[in-house]
Design a protein around this nucleic acid. Structure first.
Length: 485
RNA sequence: CGGGGCGUAGCGUAGCCUGGUAGCGCACAGCGUUCGGGACGCUGGGGUCGUGGGUUCGAAUCCCACCGCCCCGACCA
């Protein structure tokens, strides 16, 4: 009871006003703050540390699969951006343009990159001459600007950070294989590091990336029942290689256009982590990406500086040596109770309390952020217990998120039920769709639901055929509908 | 970009209708007592009342324009 009162007092409840909760958590946990420019935010040190952890973990995977990092220019000449018509049309409403250098008006406008296919394609055409130059497997970590009308911290900001892979291959099969490999890599990454389960599949024509042949995606279900696109992997075919003239002489001495892919995830993932795991007490960060995995709060009573603090310090050093990101909060201006609440707000996965009573018993109290469980742990076992508990928290966060996803995935076979689910419960709707964009548009107009992904064959698990939820036509397209961010 | 709502200290707000010294809580600073779930007392600092213009002797308050934010639609990682 007391606990609930406290929470109500401090932050908006997640269930009561999700949007407000989300923004409040971000500000109070010092993840980010609004900048004095519309739609732009400052990622504060705590939030940026999450990004750095996430980035490192993903970067490792990208490199393990044979890719190298590089960096391309922020500005893209208009003439380059114009080359792929569909691409330009898709992005032009949200491109920021540089028109002046100092006082001089530029002869050609420069786009602030909304994505880098164009500038990278331009460079690749210079570098690729032979099949021996392939595959080109390059990734870049960069900032992107898209002039969005509606923005939200992390989920959609005018400028955001991301990673974009751009590869070129000899054959369509190879490029397709790369596209799918990255899709799987993203899926594995979000599940094992962010503890967010995702659905994956292919986008419809309507939803695919401007200029791509096919867009594959991972999508996660958020706590308000809306779906969030977490990452995309595009099979670009030869669209860009044809317009940027990326040609090579193949093994039969014939000139061929390269087969390309591009793929990316962004700082949006941080927003997903906040929404997926957070609760009324604040953030819950998965241990794998938490800037602080363990916080030690000494109980500052009596001559604690002489009795408690040395033990707390020793614990800190032990854990640090074991490779755990640990912080000892020995500030005197705050009471233990305040610190408990504060670190919970910031989502630290595990707290260790140690006071005079514990010292006597040669123990400390370990408190889990995910469950709230308090367990006394013998000091000599602490290192092992902490490591094990962190691993368990990571697992249980994923498990809880997975359960939520399952509980909110509705298999539906008629449109009445479809509408009612989307209206009342939201969540993911798994159903058949004929493939006709007229049916897709009708759903969007009537329910605001969109097709998040068309399931790939391997994920269909037996359900090969069914009837379109709208028109009733026989189809093999099993899809997920949802309202989306 | 349409429809609605809101801008007063870092945050949450009172005051606006009926023009006349900007107030409160939290946070912040200092000192002291505290400290096992958001401590308490005393003292103190902090305000272009979103911005610009107008009306008026006088504007947070009335009028106009603009900007920003939130919600609901259209567009998107």
């Amino acid at each position: 009871m007391k606990k609930e009162e406290r929470l109500v007092k401090k932050i908006t409840q997640k269930s009561k006003d999700f949007s407000k909760w989300y923004v409040e958590i971000i500000k109070k946990a010092e993840m980010a703050d609004y900048a004095p420019i519309k739609g732009m935010m400052v990622i504060r040190p705590y939030g940026f540390a999450v990004w750095e952890n996430l980035q490192n973990l993903l970067d490792l995977r990208i490199k393990e699969t044979g890719h190298s990092n590089a960096y391309f220019p922020l500005f893209i000449p208009e003439s380059l951006l114009e080359k792929e018509a569909e691409h330009l049309e898709g992005f032009s409403p949200e491109v920021a343009w540089v028109t002046h250098g100092g006082k001089e008006e530029l002869e050609e406008r420069l786009a602030v990159r909304p994505t880098s296919e164009a500038i990278i394609g331009n460079m690749y055409s210079k570098w690729i001459k032979s099949y021996r130059d392939l595959p080109v497997l390059i990734n870049q970590w960069a900032n992107i600007v898209r002039w969005e009308r509606v923005t939200r911290p992390f989920l959609r900001t005018t400028e955001f950070l991301w990673q974009e892979g751009h590869t070129v291959h000899e054959t369509a099969e190879e490029a397709q294989k790369e596209t799918m490999m990255i899709l799987e890599l993203y899926k594995e990454f979000t599940e094992s590091e962010l503890a967010i389960p995702v659905i994956s599949g292919i986008k419809t024509e309507r939803e695919k990336f401007a200029g791509a042949e096919a867009t594959y995606c991972i999508e996660a279900l958020m706590a308000d029942g809306k779906a969030l696109q977490m990452g995309t992997s595009h099979f670009l075919g030869q669209h860009f290689s044809k317009v940027f003239n990326i040609r090579f002489e193949d093994r039969n001495q014939k000139l061929q256009y390269g087969w390309q892919t591009s793929w990316g995830v962004s700082t949006r993932l941080i927003g997903a982590v906040i929404m997926a795991h957070g609760d009324d007490s604040g953030l819950k960060l998965p241990p794998r990406i938490a800037p602080i995995q363990v916080v030690i709060v000494p109980i500052s009573v009596g001559d604690w500086q002489k009795t408690v603090l040395p033990v707390a310090t020793r614990i800190k050093n032990d854990l640090k040596q074991a490779g755990i990101r640990v912080k000892l909060d020995q500030r005197e201006e705050f009471t233990p109770g305040w610190k408990f609440a504060n670190w919970e707000m910031r989502g630290v996965p595990l707290r260790i309390e140690i006071g005079p009573r514990d010292i006597k018993n040669n123990q400390a109290i370990a408190v889990r952020r995910d469950t709230g469980d308090k367990t006394p742990v013998a000091l000599k076992e602490l290192k092992e217990k902490v490591s094990a508990t962190l691993a368990d928290i990571q697992k249980s966060l994923l498990k809880a998120a997975f359960k939520y996803q399952q509980d909110n995935t509705h298999e539906v076979d008629n449109y009445e039920e479809f509408k009612s689910v989307l209206e009342n419960q939201r969540g993911l709707i798994k159903t058949f769709w004929c493939g006709d964009s007229a049916c897709e548009d009708r759903v969007k107009n009537e329910t605001m639901g969109t097709i998040r992904a068309v399931l790939l064959d391997k994920d269909k698990s037996g359900k090969a055929k069914g009837k379109c939820v709208l028109c009733g036509k026989e189809t093999d397209k099993l899809v997920y509908f949802a309202r989306a961010y």
